[in-house]
Design a protein around this nucleic acid. Structure first.
Length: 275
DNA sequence: AAGAGAGGCAACCGCAACGAT
DNA sequence: CATCGTTGCGGTTGCCTCTCT
């Protein structure tokens, strides 16, 4: 299938996002949601590809994200879910409201994996390492931990560093997220409006505890999840919303999505759905 | 105080899946 | 049914920060 690149590689900026870019993207998505990611950077005035915008949004800018290290409860849940699901980070993330697959994946690779190794547990199979040395003697045990669809590609992670294990401080392994003063009240408009909207398609699996009837959301996440990620504090989103993108769309308040709205009007349906 | 090394995290890449036409 | 376009996912990389010497 002749796949086209998601964007023209030429003239597309890569690398770390600047505060200004974040501001543009967040403001745009909160105002309009995303019709399709491909056009988001154009309409938001960004020299990024849509894919990059989507990643930035889902992994960092979404208002319902929790920030900071996973607490012990979450860590236990991740380990448990990993034992069941393998490297299905998105599935795992779906069970941890406010956490992204990327975040969990990183945390696993940097913290949990080492922690398990130090405990003598194979982070891939969740079996004691001694048993790993022996030829796979307990297939039924493997099956218990690896769902069928998993078995095709699991065990690909390098297990080489088991012997050169860095010593990490216990407090590095699990540290409760720093108590952030909720300085800026999460905009009420956040709920049921554009933000949850855009989180809807991509992040639908990650329920927004603050805004939705989080189906499978374990308790004790709600309060923190309502906090905005740091960039939000910096931006002063009120201004963005008020300005209605006059600055970015000089035609004077013309909704760039006018041609995009199926019904010509608003941007979202009640299910956050553009798509 | 400076340099080297290690660790952690954000972002990118490429493939697969899915829906639309 | 085949093709195309978009989104989602998992693996990997590169840079920045922190720690140690």
């Amino acid at each position: 299938m002749g796949r086209q690149p998601c964007c023209d590689k030429v003239g597309v900026k890569k690398g770390p996002w600047t505060a200004e870019e974040d501001q543009k993207l967040v403001g745009f998505l909160l105002t309009h949601g995303h019709c399709c990611w491909r056009v988001v950077p154009k309409l938001a005035g960004l020299l990024r590809c849509g894919k990059s915008c989507r990643l930035r949004w889902t992994n960092y800018l979404r208002p319902d994200l929790k920030r900071g290290l996973l607490d012990e409860e979450e860590e236990r849940l991740v380990i448990d879910l990993h034992a069941q699901l393998g490297n299905r980070w998105s599935k795992i993330a779906a069970r941890l409201p406010g956490r992204t697959d990327n975040e969990i994946k990183n945390h696993w690779n940097t913290h949990i994996r080492k922690k398990l190794l130090r405990m003598g547990i194979d982070p891939v199979t969740h079996l004691p390492l001694q048993e790993q040395a022996v030829p796979p003697a307990a297939p039924q045990e493997q099956e218990r931990h690896q769902p069928p669809q998993q078995q095709r590609q699991e065990h690909q992670q390098p297990q080489s560093d088991g012997d050169l294990l860095p010593v990490i401080q216990p407090d590095k392994i699990t540290t409760p997220p720093p108590a952030q003063p909720t300085a800026v009240a999460a905009p009420a408009s956040n709920c049921g409006s554009a933000s949850s909207a855009s989180a809807g398609s991509a992040a639908a699996s990650v329920v927004s505890p603050s805004c939705s009837s989080s189906a499978s959301a374990p308790a004790a996440h709600g309060a923190e999840a309502t906090e905005w990620p740091d960039p939000m504090y910096l931006f002063g989103m009120d201004g963005i919303m008020d300005d209605a993108w006059d600055g970015l769309f000089p035609d004077g308040g013309v909704d760039p999505f006018d041609g995009c709205y199926p019904g010509g009007g608003g941007g979202f349906d009640q299910d956050d759905g553009w798509m």
